[in-house]
Nucleic acid binder design. Structure first.
Lengths: 151, 151
DNA sequence: CAGAACTTTCAAAGATTTCTGAAGACTCGA
DNA sequence: TCGAGTCTTCAGAAATCTTTGAAAGTTCTG
């Protein structure tokens, strides 16, 4: 087995490219590469050499988007967290919100620009495209889930 | 027709949410809402009250990702640009690169973590998911193109 | 119920990103 | 080839985003 830490840092870099802030990306990578089932905030701070405040913020953010979850009841004083099953599908679903926002922006734009302007033609194509994606993306994700569940 | 400028600024805000820098987002929105077929850099700088340098940078960036294009040969000294047909489909296709990066990061992670670790299980799901998306997303986009072209 | 062990919050420092403006490069017509 | 008009580049200023560290808040245990 090669150097896990290095692979984790590379993963963090990729995640950061995707828009996560650096500390959050490193925390997420640590969850992904953890040897244990769940991890505590203190462990993360020590392992990554970042402040407890940063870890707290990262955990809050990652929980909000559904990538990690609190682990029910390990008889311990500390909170334990772990990566959620189906996290990536959840993440992509939530990006669907961006698709919806684009659709709505196009729609409002058409109303503002008037129906027969050049702008309306362009915005019409935009609305079509994002409307299509907004309908089809969830179906695609479901298709993956179905395929996975079929052992 | 309502206030086009306001709709454009709202659109710019949405685009900025999607990761474009503010000046670039405002330039893009201006392209979308333009009354004319093509637009020049100077017009953009004046209309948006931003520096020529910012406009230059924005045009370069938007050209690179395929959202706008230089208009062939309008007999004018200035360069003219316009939004490209199918720009949104192109944009989504290019985001496929992110999907690929996630797939590859997962793949490398599995190699580093060793096959029977908890990490490998998590990374395996990730690799499956992004692998699936990498295969299916282009097909989905093509499906939209086909639907559009069928008048 | 008090104290210890953790966690969260938040103001301020630090880091990073973005924008500007001016200098230089390019292009085209005369 | 010159010069007017336009575009690009880039160093530094400005704005924005992140992280830290310490104080306040919570929650368990004894």
């Amino acid at each position: 087995m090669a150097d896990t830490t290095e692979a984790a840092e590379r993963m963090a870099l990729t995640l950061a490219q995707g828009g996560l802030q650096k500390a959050t990306a490193r925390v997420m990578a640590a969850f992904m590469f953890a040897d244990t089932d769940s991890v505590t905030a203190t462990e993360l701070a020590e392992q990554l050499h970042i402040s407890s405040g940063s870890v707290s913020g990262a955990i809050k953010m990652l929980s909000t988007v559904g990538l990690i979850e609190r682990v029910p009841a390990p008889a311990s004083r500390r909170e334990h967290y772990r990566m959620r099953d189906g996290a990536w599908a959840t993440l992509m679903s939530s990006q669907n919100g961006m698709v919806q926002a684009m659709f709505e922006a196009a729609d409002q734009g058409i109303k503002a620009a008037g129906a027969d302007s050049p702008a309306a033609r362009r915005l019409g194509e935009m609305r079509d495209f994002y409307g299509f994606m907004f309908r089809e993306l969830p179906a695609l994700i479901d298709r993956w889930r179905a395929g996975r569940d079929a052992t």
